[in-house]
Simulated assay, not measured.
Amino acid sequence: MRKRNHRSTASRAAVAAVTAAVLGVATLTACDASGGNSPGPKGSTAAAKPSPKPTPAWDTSPRSVAAVGDSITRGFDACTVLSDCPEVSWATGSDAQVKSLAVRLLGKSRARTHSWNYARTGARMADLPAQMARAGAARPELVAVMAGANDACRATAGAMTPVAGFRADFEEALRQLRRAAPKAQVYVMSVPDLKRLWSEGRANPLGKQVWKLGICSSMLADPDAMDAAATARRDAVQQRVEAYNEVLKDVCAKDRRCRSDDGAVFGYRFDEDQLSHWDWFHPSRDGQARLAALAYRGVTAKEPLV
């Protein structure tokens, strides 16, 4: 009897020890699996840290595209003189030579039914909120933006849109979009380098004659004048364009679903082949194709172009 009792007591002790060990391991495992933000033991004074909000992943293959902006996005003077030519638009056109952003992202067939162009020739940033409201109503997955050249291209340098007003209008444009399409992605193209445009176009006698009609006079008036006043005027326009581009980048960075091209369009070293041979100002078909390629590169990049 004593031996039997001794063995029973020993067995019960062994079982108790194993059970305690198993429970201890299970408890540790549960703590490890729950992570650092799990509640502490009852009565613990340690406060739980809130989990950070996840940043939404950028979709590199959106299935619908809307475009807003000005004459560049309407393909003005790319096909016929003094006319819109939306079929060659860098953003939504169907032209095979251009191969627009919409065609590159969606394919030719889907681009015909799932892309929309709300840009307007002559539009300035003040017109963008209304365009964005229309774009938002279509519920696109991506909105492509290119605006600001007309804010710098005025009759005089003094008539350019103030930077503060430019910022306020762009912020309002994004608010208008978010009211109708809160999850739409936005890709913002920078304002082109107008001073390079002057430098390239002034080498062509026909271009200089066309500019006398009043095209972007703040930059292009008296193209051969190199005196201090003309130089200061062109420098003022260039500085304003650079300020606009900083605004586009800064405002876009505050929207979690917005990307800017980080100056890719402004920095592109275009030449005469990329300019319309009717006005030596707007992009030609080739210029529209280059813009489409730049936009596609930015939209499909896994990380923003910085």
Results as ranks from 00 to 15, higher is better:
residue 76 F to D: 06
residue 77 D to T: 10
residue 78 A to Y: 00
residue 80 T to M: 14
residue 81 V to L: 14
residue 81 V to E: 13
residue 82 L to K: 13
residue 82 L to Q: 14
residue 83 S to R: 15
residue 83 S to H: 08
residue 85 C to H: 02
residue 85 C to L: 07
residue 85 C to P: 00
residue 86 P to L: 10
residue 86 P to G: 05
residue 86 P to D: 10
residue 87 E to A: 10
residue 88 V to K: 06
residue 88 V to R: 01
residue 88 V to F: 08
residue 88 V to L: 00
residue 89 S to A: 07
residue 90 W to D: 11
residue 91 A to F: 05
residue 91 A to N: 08
residue 92 T to I: 00
residue 93 G to I: 03
residue 93 G to N: 06
residue 93 G to F: 03
residue 94 S to I: 02
residue 94 S to N: 00
residue 95 D to I: 03
residue 95 D to S: 10
residue 96 A to S: 15
residue 96 A to E: 11
residue 96 A to V: 10
residue 97 Q to S: 15
residue 99 K to R: 14
residue 99 K to W: 00
residue 100 S to T: 04
residue 100 S to I: 01
residue 101 L to N: 06
residue 102 A to H: 02
residue 102 A to R: 05
residue 103 V to A: 10
residue 104 R to S: 11
residue 104 R to V: 04
residue 106 L to H: 01
residue 106 L to A: 03
residue 107 G to K: 12
residue 107 G to I: 11
residue 108 K to Y: 03
residue 108 K to S: 15
residue 108 K to A: 12
residue 110 R to V: 07
residue 111 A to S: 04
residue 112 R to S: 14
residue 113 T to G: 04
residue 114 H to I: 06
residue 114 H to N: 14
residue 116 W to I: 06
residue 116 W to G: 06
residue 117 N to R: 09
residue 117 N to V: 10
residue 118 Y to T: 11
residue 120 R to E: 12
residue 120 R to K: 15
residue 121 T to Q: 07
residue 122 G to D: 04
residue 123 A to F: 01
residue 123 A to E: 04
residue 124 R to W: 05
residue 125 M to E: 11
residue 126 A to P: 01
residue 127 D to K: 15
residue 127 D to I: 04
residue 128 L to Q: 07
residue 130 A to S: 12
residue 131 Q to Y: 09
residue 131 Q to M: 10
residue 132 M to I: 09
residue 132 M to T: 10
residue 133 A to N: 13
residue 133 A to Y: 01
residue 134 R to C: 02
residue 134 R to L: 14
residue 134 R to Y: 01
residue 139 R to W: 03
residue 139 R to Q: 15
residue 142 L to I: 06
residue 143 V to E: 04
residue 144 A to N: 12
residue 144 A to G: 11
residue 145 V to E: 01
residue 146 M to D: 15
residue 147 A to E: 15
residue 148 G to C: 05
residue 150 N to C: 11
residue 152 A to F: 08
residue 152 A to H: 07
residue 154 R to P: 01
residue 154 R to V: 05
residue 154 R to K: 14
residue 155 A to V: 12
residue 156 T to K: 14
residue 156 T to P: 10
residue 157 A to T: 11
residue 157 A to S: 11
residue 161 T to C: 01
residue 161 T to S: 13
residue 161 T to H: 08
residue 161 T to F: 00
residue 162 P to N: 10
